[in-house]
Nucleic acid binder design. Structure first.
Lengths: 261, 261
DNA sequence: TTCGTAAATGAATGGCATTCATTTAGTGGT
DNA sequence: ACCACTAAATGAATGCCATTCATTTACGAA
């Protein structure tokens, strides 16, 4: 008997709601009212969208593209902790269950986001620059994009490429670049996997706290490590994550370059 | 008024419980009964542990070591999806809230597990073998241990070493090995970070589905990548994750070796 | 007109980590 | 010997979460 019930917050019909509690006749008994006949208050308060009746709307509210961009907006504002199906639905002025007409699970949403991000990775240097410079630009770009989205890494790392067309397109660009650079066909995928593994691991480093290696009270029992940490801190003014990434990437590039014929 | 209430499953006093429902006087009114005076059924049915009264037990049931090994057992049996605070408590015949006297959060449990695993990584070759061979053995061992525990990677990657003494001990061994091999002090940490990043990323690969790179219906639009995938499949009979790991690791070892003096 | 399907709402459901009041046991001080 | 304090357990919430299902409504094809 829903004579009194709550609504989604931030998704209220001001004509009927007081203090977050809606009072009135139950929805089934309320006469339908076409959108064009709604009170003028609706158009003057766009920040409080009109409540949608149950049932299929005249024009679809959701699709995968809309969900993807809302998810990205939400991640930008609230981070991955804030990305819940409920919050995503709220940001789209929709009931949580409505999302499941377009995605089968939250993981699906993450895959949509991942594939969008893959399209932001810069592969333009392949074909335009020497292979090693192209790999360098691609790798830095790839790391920078995903260092802001590390919660996706466990998803990407085991994601079949079929489910991610933009990601696949990225692999195609890199594959073509390596083939033209003289990499033997059968080593290309392994080389990409090796580079990508390094990139994913390095993306986490970017987000690590600055004092992650401070041995604290255990400094005496770890003299070699402690000295190495101190020496790094004294030496460089670059970000430690960038130094390590550069070091490893250059090692990989020169090591993999030896495979070419 | 708990005259009728449920118990934790698998944690029942057979003398008082029927069909998962306990009938009888509430705990406050039940006379206390010392453990030595308990019915003999207790000792003959150890698989159904006696229900513990509320209040501090005579000897402590939990500590961090007990929690850690229970967590590892649970992970082995049910995977990380099965590692919940409730399941962990159940496996220890304890109420979930009891765990919080010894850890502050589930993340704490993961850190305990991580640090235990770090002690399983083989660093014995440092000092006993040439530096490159020592790095090789360490890296393979490290990857193998954590490929079965990938959900820990997001935790480790940003974990201050102070909170993980065994992990710190591992770093100390590697640092000493690299110093003795002639690596300049200020490059040692960066080298370890680069290797570790590659290792973490590669640990995910191990768990990826075999057909992760099958382009499916999009094969025509990705000729270079498709050819590379096919060529790898035809070529090798080794596990693709192992081939890529070997390739990248050897590249890193030879690249980093150039830093020595 | 009727029927089937797509896309929305609304109301559960069960599981989750965590918190808090309460109970009990040991310990250190007077 | 008593008393206060603290540690370590239980039991009962709390609030959030992803997901499911019945229901409602709209549109398009037969």
């Amino acid at each position: 008997m829903p004579f009194i019930y709550e609504n989604y917050s931030g998704f209220r019909d001001v004509t009927e709601v007081v203090n977050g509690i809606m009072l009135g006749t139950p929805p089934a008994e309320r006469p339908t009212m076409p959108a064009t006949a709604r009170p003028a208050t609706d158009s003057r308060q766009p920040e409080i969208p009109a409540k949608r009746r149950a049932g299929r709307p005249s024009s679809a509210v959701l699709d995968q593209a809309v969900i993807t961009s809302a998810a990205l907006r939400l991640i930008g504002k609230s981070g991955y902790d804030g990305l819940t199906m409920a919050a995503l639905a709220r940001s789209l002025h929709v009931a949580p269950s409505a999302l499941y007409n377009h995605v089968t699970s939250k993981r699906d949403v993450l895959v949509l986001v991942e594939d969008h991000l893959a399209s932001l990775v810069d592969v333009s240097a392949f074909g335009a620059e020497p292979w090693d410079e192209a790999v360098r630009q691609w790798a830095w770009s790839y790391r920078d994009v995903f260092s802001k989205h590390t919660p996706l890494i466990p998803v990407i790392a085991v994601l079949p490429v079929t489910d991610a067309p933009q990601t696949l397109a990225m692999y195609e660009s890199v594959s073509e670049g390596l083939r033209q650079a003289g990499f033997p066909q059968e080593r290309i995928v392994s080389s990409i996997v090796a580079l990508e593994s390094f990139i994913f691991g390095s993306a986490y480093d970017v987000t690590a706290p600055a004092d992650i290696f401070d041995p604290g009270s255990m400094a005496e029992s770890t003299p070699n490590f402690t000295a190495a940490v101190r020496s790094l801190a004294e030496q460089g003014h670059e970000k430690p994550a960038d130094v390590a990434f550069s070091l490893g990437l250059e090692a990989l590039i020169s090591g993999l370059g030896a495979l070419r014929r």
